[in-house]
Amino acid sequence: MNSFSLLSEAINNRIVMKIHLKIWRQKNQNTKGQLETYTLDDVDAEMSFLEMLDMLNLKLAKQGERPVEFDHDCREGICGQCGVMINGIAHGPLKNTTTCQLHMRSFKDGDTIFVEPFKAKAFPVIRDLKVNRSALDEIIAAGGYISVSTGQAPEANSILVSHEEAESAFDSAACIGCGACVATCKNASAALFTSSKISQLAKLPQGKKESNKRTVDMVNRMEDLGFGHCTNTEACQVECPQDISVLNIAQMNYEYNKAKLVK
């Protein structure tokens, strides 16, 4: 089968859907937002969710209307930029998937899809589906780093890190900072995000000396920024695109309690 017949077969087997969208439109932080209804007649099932929004925006631009603003960057599920509430679930119905990795085949012809921005006091809406998540950067800036230069990559046998510890630290480091945990949490807590960074660093020997200060500074910053507290409902892990474990939160609590006790 040559490439032409493959292409024509793909075109012939194309599933085209009619999709109704209810999208949150909000001019800026100070205005009130509301849902607007749009209908797209020829949505391809193989389109990604963001491509479907691109299609809508093209249509809006042609009609002279303001396009829907939303965050996105890599569209490969690794940067953490995209993130909206789709039908009331952060990043939509699929497990461990970012918005950009959700495809229209997850919906049916004639479906109505609600699209809203992540909502939390610490995440003010900039416009439409775009929210300001710099509060997460501020938590990292409060201590999510090692402040001394550790130089070149060390000789592998001079500081031993067990395979399990290295893997576990890497699992914690997999957080992409999308903010789905905050949007999903009933208390709008950033505990999963903050703890993934704290426990990643706590598991590794570099920067051990400042681990107490780091933990207390990051947790205090998280509180100051107006995030809620963690009540261990574990919803954050369920909706996390990276399946970051809630046990990171337990480790953060351990590190924090330890830091407060030795102080």
Binding site: M85, I89, A90, T184, A188, N232, E234, C236, V238
Partner: peptide, 30 residues
């Protein structure tokens, strides 16, 4: 105190909210 704090931390509510699928009802209704 924690309930008041959570209320302050929450933004406006979602029009469509299916977040309940991710947690047990009793963990949310403490």
């Amino acid at each position: 105190y924690l309930s008041i704090k959570a209320k302050k931390a929450k933004g406006s509510s979602y029009v469509k909210d299916k977040r309940n699928r991710a947690s047990k009802w009793y963990s949310r209704q403490m």
